[in-house]
Each structure stands twice: as C-alpha cells, then as structure tokens.
C-alpha cells in the first residue's frame, strides 16, 4: 500500500517537474511554426474550413472576409510572438451579439485544428497555439 502510494507520488512529481521546468525556446512559436507564410496558410485553411461548414458559416455570412483574413493573420501573429501589430477590434467587440454557443465554439476549435494540421503544424505546435488562444474563450462565448 505504502509502495503504491510512493510510486504514485513519484510519478506525480516527475510529471509536475516536467510542467514546472521552463521549455527553452530561444525562438518564438511564430518562428518555430514557419513565420508569416504559415500564419497565412493557417488563416486561409481556416476560412476554407468555415466556408464548408454550414453550422459555423452562418456566423460569417455578413463578414467582410478580406478584412477578417487580414485581422486574423495579425492576431495570430501577435499571439504566437511574431513581429506584428493587431489593428482590429477587441475579441469581445468582434464576437458580441453573435450568441456563440459552446457547441459551435468547440466545433470552430476543431476547424482551426484542421487548418493548422493542413498547414503542416505538428501536434505539439497545434497544442502550443491552442494554449495561447484558449484564454480568449471567455470573450467569445454567449456574448
């Protein structure tokens, strides 16, 4: 029993240490995934995914896609530590009034994951991008 507990605690500590140790990233996530061309590829793939999904496309029916593309690229560039400036509206303002449901939000995350996959991001890189985007969910849901 004590042995089991020890094993469990050891396993936990190993994993916790792994969490605590800062991963040495001399280059930004932006550079790691391939810089501006990759950011643009993700964005184009994302727009493509949305245009083929009727549940999500309805949120974009009145959207100026050229402007959306430009601002999304800027945002993703800034989020991943790239040398850009975001000139668009706040996430709250952009999503307000759309009453985005949790189902549709999560489905859109799946579309973004597909877009990243098609742009050649590894699973680990996809996770890192999702990590920097995840905190914005509060400004998007049910607003």
């Amino acid at each position: 029993m004590v042995n089991h507990l020890k094993t469990a605690l050891l396993m936990m500590s190993v994993l916790l240490v792994a969490c605590a140790t800062p991963t040495k990233t001399p280059i930004s996530l932006y550079e790691e995934i391939g810089g501006q061309p990759t950011i643009e590829a993700i964005t184009d793939n994302f727009i493509d995914e949305i245009s083929f999904n009727k549940d999500i496309y309805r949120y974009f029916e009145k959207t100026n896609i050229t402007r959306f593309r430009e601002k999304f690229i800027e945002h993703l560039c800034v989020d991943t530590g790239g040398p850009c400036t975001y000139t668009g509206d706040t996430m709250l303002k952009v999503h307000q009034g759309q009453k985005i449901t949790e189902t549709d939000f999560n489905l859109t995350v799946d579309l973004l994951v597909n877009a990243m996959k098609k742009a050649g991001l590894t699973y680990v890189q996809q996770n890192r991008v999702l990590k920097v985007l995840a905190p914005m969910r509060g400004e998007m849901l049910y607003k």
Binding site: L15, C19, Y123
Partner: peptide, 13 residues
C-alpha cells in the same frame, strides 16, 4: 487539462 504543458503535450490530472 493543461494544454501543451509537458514538452508541448497536453496533460490531464
């Protein structure tokens, strides 16, 4: 779930 917590992999506890 911690996104990308262990060398970029997601950790769940």
């Amino acid at each position: 779930v911690h996104l990308g917590a262990v060398a970029g992999y997601n950790l769940v506890w």
